[in-house]
């Protein structure tokens, strides 16, 4: 499958048997229409947002092993510490697509954005994006342009803050002797 033709194409990555296509944030709606109509990905499985604040910073100790993989059981692999790859922006929004045909091809379209930047809504391409985008607005604070009903869905309407962000505390009540270091 030739991913270069997709509108707003930035790069394509392949890992663990999965393909991730990074597209420009403003062109995501065209990219999704292209994926649905030209490439046959008619099923939107999921929209996920990840907050990469403090990625690679203190408290993220990275992976201990070989630089290429996981051969920890080979001798002389101790001591090599691999820091995670730095990320270009703070948020990534991933659209998991599936084509309902032979072989079940899946792809992940990914856009990267900073705090406050809006993402065009893909509700006109797949109506199922409605609640997924509302959930991302509710928990991560990402605004979707063109969404007809962008209100909180899982939390109360007057909740302040966006809990799934990394700068939002876990909450709950303090428990003795269990300080998070």
């Amino acid at each position: 499958m030739n991913w270069n033709e997709i509108p707003g194409f930035v790069e394509v990555k392949s890992a663990h048997g999965e393909t991730t296509v990074v597209v420009e944030r403003e062109r995501i709606r065209d990219a999704c229409s292209y994926a649905r109509d030209e490439l046959g990905f008619n099923f939107l499985a999921d929209i996920v947002a990840t907050d990469y604040l403090h990625w690679g910073g203190k408290g993220v100790s990275g992976y201990i092993g070989t630089a290429s993989g996981r051969d920890l059981n080979l001798p002389m692999t101790q001591g090599l510490q691999v820091q995670p790859q730095p990320k270009p922006w703070r948020f990534s929004v991933s659209y998991h697509l599936l084509a309902l045909r032979e072989g079940a091809p899946r792809v992940r379209l990914q856009v990267w954005l900073e705090d406050g930047e809006p993402v065009p809504s893909v509700i006109s391409v797949w109506p199922t994006a409605d609640w997924h985008e509302r959930e991302l607005f509710d928990l991560m604070g990402i605004r979707f342009e063109g969404h007809p009903n962008l209100v909180r869905i899982l939390l109360e309407d007057d909740w302040e803050g966006h809990p799934l962000r990394k700068d939002y505390p876990i909450g709950g009540e303090p428990v003795r002797f269990s300080d998070a270091e």
Binding site: P163, P169, I170, V175
Partner: peptide, 12 residues
């Protein structure tokens, strides 16, 4: 007591 969910969403 809130169970295993000691977080922002669940009443403890």
């Amino acid at each position: 007591s809130g169970g295993m969910f000691n977080n922002y969403a669940i009443l403890q």
